[in-house]
Design a protein around this nucleic acid. Structure first.
Lengths: 209, 209
DNA sequence: GTCTATACAGTGATAGAC
DNA sequence: GTCTATCACTGTATAGAC
């Protein structure tokens, strides 16, 4: 197992547990509220060991964000969806999208990035490319296939993809970010997706005659 | 002028300048990065004076958020729009909405609230009621008038209002939050509104026959 | 109410022994 | 490489004079 680390993964097991501890604590409490002492204790090592593996708090933070973004969004795909059955495919797509962006991990990452992008300007770009850009690209590609199959009429698929995510998201994302209400449960998510898909199809369906 | 303070405004002039200083610094740098020393210096008073007017940093922060939310969103209105000319009215509405949520102040408030809602759970509710709920209510009311005037066909105006803001917003809000690119200028905002309104109208226009 | 001065806790980061 | 002990520093909060 010693030779099978993933790319970018630290060689040492201690570095790995430090990064894991940093991920847990940063995501839970943000950058400012977490101390290097806490991370060291949580990782079961001394503070000096943390500094021997990472230049400082900022580098540790950046490493954690990059990794979480990559791992979290890389699963999103629309490649296998059927472009001739747009209602079913868009519903699946919308469901995947909402499940992804409303997941506790994604909410935590979003929260911390938005808060710290002023301190770490590079973070915005990293997150955008790992998350939203990737999902938008997948959705746009599917819409192009649907247009080619004659299932939809869309002049600007890129913009339509952005409208699709906006439509599906509504204020659900914001409600989660604000920790409102009894966390819209699974059935609410299903409703939001269904009604969003219906609206999208009404706007972009192929016009009769 | 001494007797014309607005409701909720502190009686003392110093308290007012403390709150103003807190607003500037908190919005610029977030909760954690701002010290009471900075606020005192910025307000031109001593630190002890700050503590004489506010229990501590947290109360000062809460007071600032409540006030900024109220003052910022209370201008949004859709009451005077013509429900028979939906394209023009929705474009105006969408434009007002985007101008509001993409303004530097709104972005700063959003950023700081999303970041600190874990520490101050009440903040989410305060923000939601002062901002999104109010704008959604205005939009919903306009949509109901448009339906009554026979200009649109909408079964659930509340949900349609949420879809409208999602459609107009797309990823523009996120791009601003992440500080990406050369800050989509005014013409981009205009395009986003126009194309969003077109899509909304295609989905909810009155069907012929 | 307002100020100056200060006690106190906790932070990021490092030195030196093993 | 890893630890314990400690550095210099910053921010919160309070005491006491005016």
């Amino acid at each position: 197992m010693e030779g099978t680390e993933q790319v970018d993964a630290p060689v040492s097991g201690k570095a790995e547990s430090i990064l894991a501890a940093a991920t847990r604590t940063f995501l839970a409490d943000g950058f400012g509220a977490v101390s290097m002492d806490t991370i060291a204790r949580e990782a079961g090592v001394s503070k000096a060991t943390v500094y021997s593996h990472f230049t400082g708090k900022e580098e540790l933070f950046g490493a954690m964000v990059g990794r979480v973004c990559e791992r979290h969004f890389e699963t999103f795909s629309a490649r296998e969806l059927d472009p001739t059955d747009v209602r079913t495919s868009l519903t699946t797509l919308g469901r995947r999208f909402l499940d992804l962006v409303l997941s506790p991990d994604a909410i935590a990452v979003h929260r911390i990035i938005v808060a710290e992008v002023s301190r770490f300007p590079a973070l915005g770009e990293v997150f955008w490319r790992a998350g939203p850009e990737r999902t938008l690209g997948q959705i746009e590609a599917f819409l192009r296939r649907a247009v080619a199959a004659g299932s939809l009429e869309i002049a600007q698929p890129r913009i339509a993809a952005e409208q699709f995510v906006g439509l599906i998201r509504g204020e659900n994302h914001l409600r989660h970010l604000l920790r409102l209400g009894p966390e819209s449960d699974k059935s609410d998510i299903g409703d939001a997706v269904r009604v969003g898909v219906e609206t999208f199809i009404r706007a972009f369906r192929v016009r009769a005659g």
